[in-house]
Nucleic acid binder design. Structure first.
Length: 555
RNA sequence: GCCGCUAUCGUCUAGUGGUCUAGGACGACAGGUUUUCAUCCUGUAAACCGGAGUUCGAUUCUCCGUAGCGGUACCA
């Protein structure tokens, strides 16, 4: 046991360089001047160089909530784990989120700089602040130095496991909790490395009833762990930085992943020890993935689709991804979207209490559907613009085609885009190459051509007959009438009912004739509307393709 | 092990003490339309985790199980 005076003296020994008081710090971070309802939220990632789709999920929610309320969205960087930190980690986060239209009003703006009056917004530059509060806690006996080595902690843990009690540094297991001043002084004089731990006054048997913004009513047990506040390198743990930063930055409430839920009692105790007002929490459950027959968190290591870069590289339309995420967040989003097809998503009233409380499975087929639907509503010019943006980074060949043959490309994108039956076969921009390959001779050359089982002489007759009458100025009706004429001339039926009732009478039906034309012109069995394809390709290319097919395939 | 959160079709979910024969969307499957495919249309299969209790009645309320997830670090 240490006396009040001893603790005070100890805090001076430990933090001799710290002169400021908590009050001095608090004065620098005054209450914000907010209007009714304006929200200040923060997104606080670690710069580990990997942006998880879950980061987009959480930050999109914060972004929408703050934008809707006319408040502030802050980017704070939690770089207290120097082992996992990566170079340019901050700008990677900013750029990744920027791609999804998520901007910040305050906080880091690149790897070095920030904007806003409540900084620094990077934890490694807030060291002094943490130390001021740590010193204060030590002087009040609410925190203390612990000199345990990793081995010692390990053996405590082992003993606890053998005994079947809870593991951890608590109560009588907390070796340095009640150390005398002399013991501490001796350890200090011997230059032993130490951490600063919370002196917990909690009782695990006391239940706390709390209200989570997302989960609703929850009951937690009080914390009784003497958790580490400052690590031996002097950097704070998340548990210590969170109450300080979120209090000083004057956050409205804490939106974070639900992996933090079980440490909430610890955080509450630290708030109390620091004399801070408790904050409300909204714990968002993680995006999950089916693995075999069990669910698990989308994993950075195992799942390529966990990384934001995956969506960027594949060229998923930003809007589609956002709408999918919103759909996962609030399942009534999709109903709203149907009612309000043209509204900006900012108009959607996102509600925390409507979040799913368990983890939602990430459903890529639903994402595909939403993206496909979204792209189907775009104009050809918009598709061109977005595809160009994607190709400029990921497909040089397509990029140069888009640049050099802009009008041709737009007319390709416009096939079956006007009218009531819009084509829906593009999910993401990386689908574009296989969509346009039939239109470019160099790509067409490299394609694996499909074929159909039909007499070569007959195919040749069909193609020659078609060529004889083909006229690019024909309307679709005139064009198809000519195809029918070719069919009749070569012994095919133009009436599908008639054909089905008497298939032996014919060589096939008009669809089979169209298929030969399709194969000759495109090399594929499945294409958009053949008339429109021919219109876009132009007479010369159509005739060349037919000629080429006759001279290579039909010999 | 201990602590916490969660539990409706394969997925996201709606829903309520009787309206539930449980609704929608995606997906799957089948049929139809179209010169092929995509679309579009129609249809089919598909769920209240289990057991007690409360109640005239429980998918809905309570408890106990079970399962899934998360935490149990000088990581966040």
């Amino acid at each position: 046991m240490r006396t009040i005076e001893e603790n005070k003296y100890l805090s001076e020994l430990l933090f001799s360089d710290i002169k400021e008081s908590p009050q001095d710090i608090l004065k620098k971070y005054p209450e914000r001047n907010l209007k009714e309802g304006e929200l200040v939220l923060r997104f606080a990632p670690s710069p580990t160089g990997f942006i998880h789709i879950g980061n987009v999920y959480t930050s999109l929610v914060g972004y929408l909530l703050t934008k809707r309320s006319n408040g502030k969205f802050i980017l704070r960087i939690e770089d207290t784990d120097k082992v996992r930190e990566v170079e340019n980690g901050i700008s990677q986060i900013i750029n990744g989120l920027e791609y999804f239209g998520i901007h910040f009003d305050e906080g880091m703006i690149n790897d070095k700089e920030s904007k806003g009056d409540y900084g620094p917004y990077i934890q490694s530059e807030r060291m002094n602040i943490y130390k001021v509060f740590a010193k204060d806690l030590v002087s009040k006996g609410l925190a203390y130095p612990c000199f345990c080595t990793e081995d010692e902690l390990e053996s405590i843990r082992k003993e606890q496991t053998d005994l079947g009690t809870r593991t951890g540094y608590w109560g009588k297991w907390a070796k340095w909790r009640e150390a005398t001043f002399d013991e501490v002084k001796r350890a200090l004089d011997s230059n032993w490395t130490f951490v600063i731990r919370l002196y917990s006054n909690g009782n695990i048997d006391n239940k706390i009833n709390s209200k989570d913004l997302i989960k609703g009513g929850i009951t937690l047990s009080e914390n009784d762990m003497d958790s580490v506040l400052l690590k031996s390198d002097g950097l704070p743990t998340y548990h210590f930085a969170h109450p300080i930063d979120d209090t000083l930055m004057r956050i409205s409430f804490v939106l974070r992943g639900d992996e933090w839920l079980s440490s909430q009692p610890l955080h509450m105790e630290i708030f109390k020890a620091l004399g801070f007002k408790q904050l409300e929490y909204g714990h968002i459950s993680p995006l999950m993935k089916m693995d075999g027959d069990s669910k698990r968190k989308l994993s950075k290591r195992k799942d390529p689709e966990a990384a934001v870069s995956y969506y960027i590289e594949k060229g998923y339309p930003v809007q589609g991804v956002k709408e999918y995420i919103l759909n996962v967040a609030n399942s009534n989003f999709y109903d709203w979207r149907i009612q309000n097809p043209d509204e900006d998503i900012l108009e959607f009233n996102i509600r925390l209490e409507k979040f799913n409380k368990a983890g939602a499975l990430f459903d890529i087929s639903k994402l595909n559907d939403i993206c496909k639907e979204y792209i189907s509503k775009l104009k050809a010019q918009e598709i061109y613009d977005m595809a160009l943006e994607w190709a400029s980074k990921f497909n040089e060949d397509i990029h140069s085609k888009l640049i050099n043959q802009k009008d041709y490309c737009i007319s390709i994108f416009n096939i079956e885009r006007e009218g009531s039956k819009v084509r829906k076969d593009i999910v993401k921009w990386s689908d574009i190459p296989s969509q346009v390959e039939i239109f470019f001779d160099d790509m067409f050359m490299d394609m694996d051509k499909e074929s159909v089982d039909m007499d070569k002489g007959l195919q040749k007759n069909i193609l020659n007959d078609f060529s004889d009458t083909y006229y690019p100025g024909d309307s679709v009706q005139e064009w198809f009438n000519k195809v029918k004429d070719v069919a009749i001339k070569n012994g095919f039926s133009v009436d599908s009912k008639e054909y089905e009732s008497n298939p032996k009478k014919f060589k096939g039906k008009v669809g089979d004739v169209a298929m030969i034309l399709r194969l000759a012109v495109t090399g594929k069995k499945q294409t958009p509307d053949l008339y429109q394809v021919m219109q876009v390709m132009g007479e010369e290319r159509v005739r060349e393709r037919i000629k080429g097919y006759i001279n290579t395939v039909l010999v």
